[in-house]
Design a protein around this nucleic acid. Structure first.
Lengths: 213, 213
DNA sequence: CAGTGTTTTAAACGGATGTTTTAAACCTAC
DNA sequence: GTAGGTTTAAAACATCCGTTTAAAACACTG
């Protein structure tokens, strides 16, 4: 017997299904069926499918962004020397780990949602996410700028997106890649293996010598 | 009066709409309406919506992969010293440019489709793409291995995916990022700017020192 | 226990979806 | 020009979609 509320059960089911099948590919009937609640409950508790999707993103992103912002602020006002790139990315990783646990499945789902959010173009979801969480991103960008002060801003802008793209993309498709590695290379790897490889890659890519400007 | 055939017009419209709205978010009626053909033409020429999507991917990916494979083969049997990482990625870039022209829009659409393909998990599309184009990817991987011989295979596997993730992700969302840059930073950048920054980033990330194994 | 506000339920709404059918139009070759 | 195969056309198919309704069940307060 589930102790969770109807709204929570809907959010849980929606988050899983959105991550697998995308937003348009997931119907309210799938969600309510998986959640074991009545179809009308979605519109009763959230108003519409669009608002449900926002709620899913909000529930997923808010704890992560709040925790990340708090850590960035504490390091920012300590007056000490700025954080290195590795430390910055490690903060992101540990924040994600603290918030979502080291549950590989859940973490991958979160990253898949991030990828979906990022991939949105025309939908109003992108605007919503930018307005809601753009501030944290800009604060993170300031820290990266401090960590790589010699880098031209334009170059840095793109390299950060390269690095985040590498992270989101790889972690979002982690499940699939894990399967490939096991079948083709007989290697069984965990999520933490990938993350520990990812941080040096991102740092090295950002720090790489500037060729032209 | 269009000289193109009905099947071609359907493929053109489907490619554009899939890239914008995703697969599930695009209806056959949208496609046929945009293509200016009858609704039943899709099932007549392609059999089903699923097969139409495969045809779109096939038409988009085949020229690129064929051309890429040809270049990799020619460099492989020349017997000279192996290609550098930069040269390898430049080959990918120039191949993409030759096949899709430097039309920024079309290139971005192609990358968006790549991102969609990559993001697929459970759908049979992933299996189809792996079976159809996995060979080219493995051949590319061999060249990367030659370019970074000191790198442990496991580490290399992940770094390649990091690099490809950075590329696909950034280029797929290029349109959106371009807008952000223009609005927030008053910078107007072209696709070629990003690509010339991307190649050094990928090379530097892959070449970075190995920390642990 | 009655009453009231909240939540859940079943059913139906209009519309959109992928697919199929049947007939018309087209084109080519005899 | 007419027969036969190919392509298009309009319409209908059953099913699924997001949303709404109205009544039943529940939870709580007085």
């Amino acid at each position: 017997m589930p102790k969770s509320t109807t709204a929570e059960r809907i959010l849980d089911a929606a988050q899983i299904l959105f991550a697998i099948k995308g937003f348009a590919g997931t119907s309210l009937r799938h969600i309510t069926s998986k959640a074991g609640v009545n179809l009308a409950a979605v519109n009763y508790h959230f108003g519409s499918k669009e608002k449900l999707m926002r709620a899913v993103f909000e529930r997923t992103l808010t704890p992560f962004c709040d925790s990340l912002e708090k850590q960035l602020l504490s390091h920012g006002q300590s007056g000490g020397e700025p954080l290195t790139l590795e430390e910055l990315f490690e903060i992101m990783v540990s924040t994600a780990n603290n918030v979502y646990g080291d549950d590989s499945k859940e973490f991958s789902r979160f990253m898949r949602l991030m990828g979906l959010a990022y991939a949105q173009t025309q939908d109003e979801l992108r605007g919503f996410l930018g307005a809601r969480y753009g501030m944290v991103f800009r604060r993170f960008l300031v820290h990266v700028k401090l960590a790589a002060p010699e880098m031209p801003p334009k170059e840095l802008f793109w390299r950060i997106h390269f690095a985040l793209g590498a992270a989101v993309f790889t972690l979002a498709s982690f499940g699939g890649l894990q399967e490939v590695l096991l079948n083709d290379y007989k290697m069984d790897v965990g999520l933490s293996d990938v993350v520990t490889r990812l941080v040096p890659f991102m740092a090295a890519g950002i720090r790489g010598e500037v060729e032209v400007e």
